[in-house]
Design a protein around this nucleic acid. Structure first.
Length: 420
RNA sequence: GCGGGGGUCGCCUAGCCUGGUAGGGCGUGGGAUUGCUAAUCCCAUGUCCGUAAGGACCCGUGGGUUCAAAUCCCAUCCCCCGCGCCA
């Protein structure tokens, strides 16, 4: 959610953002609702003032033994009038909120302007693309031949985009998680294993309405939703809190399964475990002071890059354009890993600065001294590792001529072997 | 799941029975006083609308009763204690 003051005072900034993002949004309606909303606030406030004054009058009269009947009769009228006006105010307020909650975040100046991902910019590349002196396979073939994934049976029991991991791939999956947690622990991140289901109001803090349709699974008959990432749980964790400035920045390493509908992804990455409804992820989530969030953003990206360098997975860093940017994010870097079997770079990390967009929705503020004005924090999130996609990269890049997989060095100790 | 207790403006707490401006303590900031420190005293310390003056809102949440609700009634969420069930 954007600062209502900014929306009112500098609408041209919002209009430019909407144009740059190429989103449909009825901003004029929002402005007119905002005007109505303010107008009704003033009117009801005045009526309440009158009512409060009369109430006092009644109390004083009664105490001194005088009759308050005429004031009470008058108050009755005012109360009725107020009730009607209040109903109006609630309706307009709700309309405004509903619309305002769907408005995307501001865009940072450094973000390239463009309609879609074709305007994304390569920031840098790391690592040499591996060369093979034999005919390489993709992760589907490799995993089938080594008995590491069963897609057919998963289709039978759960549907498309599910999988049974088997044998050493189960261990490799766990090894990635274990390594990622050790890696972030060393960097002083606090470990968090969050609720995998959260209620609607918490979920609304982290995401925008469309996502409920396209990515989030709902639990039947309960006010509960399966998280699409631990980001959702962790964002809401400090809702309605005032944090102490001395504790900032707060850096969390979230670990959880992630559940995603993948609606609208029909036909893309249909087979294999690249795009699935469920996977494990270790996530970086940071609450920072506003003036420090851009520094933290670069830091999180650097942490993610270091992780893939340790795994020796070649990658490139992309800066997403305005049209490709997620709605809650003001700036996003993706890390795309080289995937030999697909002969291309594919997304494995998304690193975003959401500014005060999420914290404003969730009322997460801070201050240095208890009598100071509170400020909204900035929140940032970045993948450290989403296991299935990294498993794809490992299987494809580390395949050997005899049809096996060599295990990246940092994972060997967790796995207890150097090949699969 | 059942029975009992509870949720008050950063933290603690009074008020609820008996409806009528939410009071106190702590913390924090400022000021006064004081060789220094400490102690003491005064003021400030939530959200929203407003350029401001000012005003409204705020007692877990949502309804209801009433001229008027922190207070009475109903529903609901969460926490604590006991019982039951349970990996």
């Amino acid at each position: 959610m954007l600062d209502p003051k900014l929306v009112k005072e500098k609408p041209e900034i919002v209009r430019k953002m909407l144009a740059d993002r190429h989103v449909q949004f009825d901003f004029d309606l929002l402005l007119s609702l905002d005007g109505k909303r303010r107008e009704l606030i003033v009117k009801t406030d005045e009526l309440r003032k009158l009512k409060n004054k009369m109430g006092l009058d009644v109390a004083t009269k009664k105490k001194s033994g005088q009759s308050a009947d005429s004031v009470i009769a008058e108050m009755q009228k005012v109360s009725q009038e107020l009730q009607i006006l209040e109903a109006d105010q609630i309706k307009v307020g709700a309309d405004y909120d509903r619309l305002a909650m769907t408005m995307p975040n501001l865009i940072h100046d450094s973000v390239p302007i463009g309609a879609d991902n074709s305007a994304n910019v390569v920031v840098r590349s790391w690592g040499a693309v591996p060369k093979f002196d034999f005919k390489i396979k993709d992760h589907i073939d490799i995993s089938q031949e080594l008995g590491l994934v069963d897609l057919e049976r998963a289709a039978k029991t759960a549907g498309a985009r599910f999988y049974y991991l088997k044998n050493s791939l189960v261990r490799l999956n766990q090894a990635l998680i274990h390594f990622a947690l050790d890696f972030l622990t060393e960097k002083q991140y606090g470990l968090i294993q969050p609720p995998y289901m959260i209620n609607r109001s918490s979920m609304e803090g982290a995401i925008i309405a469309d996502d409920f349709e396209n990515v989030i699974y709902k639990v039947q008959d309960e006010d509960l939703f399966l998280i699409g990432t631990s980001e959702h749980s962790i964002a809401a964790m400090h809702a309605d809190e005032i944090l102490e400035g001395k504790d900032l920045p707060i850096r969390y390493a979230g670990v959880s399964p992630c559940f995603r509908k993948e609606a609208g992804a029909h036909g893309r990455d249909q087979k294999g475990i690249f795009r699935v409804h469920q996977f494990e992820k270790v996530e970086q989530y940071v609450f920072a002071r506003p003036e420090e969030s851009w520094k933290e953003h670069e830091k999180m990206l650097a942490v993610a890059e270091e992780f893939y360098q340790k795994l020796e997975i070649p990658y490139r860093v992309m800066l997403l354009s305005s049209g490709d940017l997620g709605k809650v994010s003001a700036k996003t870097y993706d890390i795309e890993a080289w995937m030999a079997g697909q002969n291309s770079y594919r997304e494995i990390v998304s690193c975003s600065n959401c500014l005060d967009f999420q914290t404003r929705r969730l009322k997460i503020r801070f201050r240095d001294k208890s009598n100071e004005q509170t400020q909204y924090l900035h929140s940032l999130n970045s993948t450290l590792v989403a296991t299935t996609r990294t498993l794809v990269a490992i299987m494809e890049n580390f395949q050997t001529h005899d049809g096996h997989i060599s295990v990246p060095k940092p994972l060997q100790k967790y796995l207890g072997s150097s090949t699969i």
